[in-house]
Structures are given as C-alpha cells and as structure tokens.
Write a protein that binds this DNA or RNA. Structure first.
Lengths: 194, 194
DNA sequence: CGAGGCCTTGACCGCGGTCAATGCCCGTGG
DNA sequence: CCACGGGCATTGACCGCGGTCAAGGCCTCG
C-alpha cells in the first residue's frame, strides 16, 4: 500500500512545502472492489487514478464484442484515458479493478494546480507522458513484428509480477492472441526446458 | 512548401512578437534528397524535423532484417525519436526521406527556449504530445484487433493523400502485413465494387 | 535496350483462430 | 460435508488468413 503523497515525497518528485498546498479537494481516495468500473466507454474521462494498492486494467471492446487489454496498472502506476481527458471526447475504453484496490483519484484540476505550483511535478508529469509514448512504441513494434511466443516472453520479462496476478486469458488479450494460443505457447516453452 | 515560422504564425501557434525571438541558431533549414538519412539507429536523436515539403518516414529494422514503418511525415508534420531525445538513449529507429524534402531542423535547445518564451508554443507542444499518444493508441487497437483489409481501409480513410505518394510495400510495412497480402486485399476490394 | 524496382498472381504451408470436449479448482448452498 | 456449477486452463480437430517462395509483367531510368 503506497499513499500517493508519500510516494511523491519518497521519490522526491515534489518538495514537501509544495505537498501541503496539494491537499486540496481535488484529490480524493477511493476503495473499489474487484470488478468495479471507474471509467466506462462513452463517458468523458475526468480523473486520473493512482493505484495505491491492487490492480486495474484499461481495455476496449471491439465491434465483435472482444476485449482488448491496453494496459495493466499495478501499485504506483497511473491509469486514465489521456485522450479523453485532453480532447474532452467520450472515451473508447473501460477501466475496472481486477483486484480489490485503493486509489488516489486526481481531478484534472488537481494536476493543473500541481503543475503550476511545483516545477518538480511538472517535470514528473512530462516524464510520465514521454514514458507513455516510449511504452506505446514498444507495443506497436511488438505487435507488428513478433509472433505469439516472443510476445509472451517479452511480457514475462517486462512484467514478471503481473503474470502471477492475472488470469491467463487477460494476458492473452493484452498480447493480442487467444487464450488457447497462449496455452499452447506455454506448453511448448515448458516442454523445451525440462 | 510551408515555412516553419509561417506555419506557426498562420495557425496562431505563436505570437509574432515571440516569433522574432525564435530566429536563433538553433533553428536551421535543410534540403535532403530522396533516400537521405536524417537519423540512424544507434545515434542519439538531437533534433526534431518539421517537414516543409516532401515526405519522411520513421522505421525500425527487426532481428530478421525486416523494415517496420512506424510513421509517415508529410508536409507540416513533425518527426523525431522522442524517446531517444528525452531519455538520451541511442535510437532504435531510422528516419529517411521518401521524397526530396525541405526540412526545418529544431534543436532541442530551440524547443526549450520556445517553450519558455511562448506560452502558446508550450500549449502547442503539449498538444503534439497528446496527439501522438492518441495516434499510438489507435495504432495499437488496430494491430490488436483488425485484419488486413480493415487496416488498409482505415489507413485509406486516415491518409488518402499518402497512399498516392508512397510505394505499396511501404504501406504494407506500416500496416504490419506483406506487400503480397496488400495486393490481394486491393484486388478483392476492386472486385467487390465494380 | 537492358536492368532493376515494384506490383501481381499462383501454389503451398504454417501459425494462430475457432469450436468443442474435458478436467480442475473453488465457492456456494443444500 | 458433499454436490453442484461456473470460471479458467488445457487439449484436439479443423480451417482460414496471411506469410513465403517463385514466376511473370510492367514501368522507369540509365
């Protein structure tokens, strides 16, 4: 369990004098049970969620009714629909809790003031944006080039902790393959290792 | 042909009083012939390119030697490797000219000063970042969910102008399919239309 | 005219999707 | 405590999309 402000302080992302000013009504806490939605398709996303404990997922549902997981968000991760927030358009995505979770909920206004008050927060926010882009580039590269097995191996090396916590069909969804395929890949991997 | 500063002024992205301050040595022009590289894998990217005329591409080469086009950049588009710039790491990508092109070359320092001088430029830069993310999300969604034909149709509707200008095998590369597959998709589409 | 780049077409094949059956684990209620 | 049911993983049979390889045509440019 990682309190949002503690996290900012510990990582030296915001000076403590600034932190006090940031205890506004635009920051709140929320405890959600597994399965709870915090964003539904069609809504305009107005909040960013910092995961203090638990695990969320961001996903879309395509025209054939299939889920495609875009992102997992474990402890100390942020999740939101940036495009919806920034462009004020209804979201294409859902966000729900895979585990019982504790969230810090940041209103857009909170982030705006944090940025204007604290240069470190501004820097940090920009870091998050850049990192997001880097991550998406990797993802595109993987989807364009790699077969099922390489995708799974890459996912394992990047997120070993997440593999333990989510059902396989969700990992398959993240990788853009079917649960059956993932099962076959796993079988093959164990066979060739002993 | 679209001069960079004219573009900023015409779109009211920077006030004219600020524009004058931005004619520094950190902004230069460059004319490149088709085939010229402006970024090679392994280099640290130190510049952002604004395309005044012509057409560039950003692409990677995977372990099997295959090219994967990440982005086309026609007139008035920006192209660079943001991750390499921001994190100071060697780039995974190549950028070269598909047509003879005229570029405005923005040093990182130029962008930094522009941001500090002009609030409009800051806003605009943030817009570019957000838009980049939106675009990548769409791309991931497409690659995860759609078959060859839908990808091609989506590409056509998004970038009708680019289709005319680049060889098909590059479009195939962008879509993550082979030139042969794209050819078959096109055949099928014309057959079912008349 | 020849060479090389690009698109097309065909034959073949393999990865991964689909569908269905089975088994396992676990929570719930009789 | 056991029986039942539902969710998930596995496995097998089948198939189709798209990749691979190779041949042929067309255009451009030297």
């Amino acid at each position: 369990m990682s309190n949002f402000h503690d996290y900012l302080r510990d990582k030296a992302l915001v000076r403590s004098e600034h932190l006090e000013q940031l205890c506004s009504s635009y920051l709140s806490n929320r405890v959600v049970k597994k399965g709870t939605f915090v964003l539904m398709k069609g809504e305009v996303c107005k909040q960013t969620f910092f995961v203090e404990s638990g695990l969320l997922r961001l996903y879309s549902i395509d025209s054939k009714g299939k889920e495609h997981i875009i992102q997992f968000a474990p402890e100390t991760w942020f999740v939101s629909d940036r495009s919806s927030i920034y462009f004020g358009k209804p979201s294409e995505y859902f966000i729900d809790a895979i585990e019982d979770s504790e969230l810090a909920v940041l209103d857009n206004h909170y982030i705006d003031t944090a940025i204007s008050i604290s240069p470190e927060f501004r820097t940090y926010n920009e870091y998050l944006l850049q990192n997001h882009i880097r991550h998406l580039h990797n993802r595109v590269n993987m989807l364009i080039g790699a077969d099922a097995q390489s995708r799974y191996l890459e996912f394992m090396s990047l997120y070993p902790n997440i593999i333990q916590r989510v059902p396989q069909w969700m990992i398959a969804s993240y990788l853009g393959i079917t649960p059956e395929s993932l099962s076959r890949v796993r079988k093959e991997l164990t066979e060739n290792k002993g």
